[in-house]
């Protein structure tokens, strides 16, 4: 049976860094959506909205971070198992609401936090099932 590569502190921190980067990208996306001044999408304002979004420099900062993050994930995959990387990657679902509170002044309720926690458990289960299958296949 193939031995699963352990998660070193270094890799762990790199994944958390990748999570923070992606969360930052999402904040930039949301900020540029707010900057369009359009707070409700209708059929009539859809095209002006998309045009405004893509002409916003803030959005392009977000897209640039996203692409960099993609390359970073490539490097992470080369050093660890997907089944280990994925649950740590799901920390993004906790970082994004924290960032939303600080940078977007959103009100994150207790129900929302509870839901997020349940989602993380689900992602953990899903990622563990993949590792099980993989180990079995390679045995």
């Amino acid at each position: 049976m193939k031995k699963i590569k352990p998660l070193t502190l270094k890799i762990f921190l790199i994944i958390i860094f990748a999570d923070i980067l992606e969360s930052a990208a999402e904040i930039f996306f949301k900020k540029s959506a707010l900057a369009t001044g359009i707070s409700d999408i209708t059929v009539r304002n859809l095209f002006p909205f998309v045009f405004k979004m893509f002409s916003s420099p803030i959005l392009w900062i977000g897209i640039f971070i996203y692409i960099f993050n993609f390359l970073l994930w490539m490097a992470i995959y080369s050093r660890t198992e997907l089944s280990v990387a994925f649950p740590v990657g799901s920390v993004i679902y906790i970082i994004v609401p924290i960032f939303s509170m600080f940078f977007l002044h959103e009100n994150v309720t207790l129900t929302r936090w509870l839901g997020i926690l349940v989602i993380c458990v689900g992602i953990y289960l899903v990622s563990q099932s993949t590792s099980h299958e993989k180990v079995k296949n390679e045995a």
Partner: peptide, 24 residues
């Protein structure tokens, strides 16, 4: 790709969490 109970269980948790968040 193969389906197994862990995957299905994980999916149930995700759906339950989403319902909580979306209703908050």
């Amino acid at each position: 790709e193969r389906m197994n109970w862990k995957k299905i269980g994980g999916v149930m948790f995700i759906i339950a969490g989403v319902i909580l968040v979306a209703s908050s």
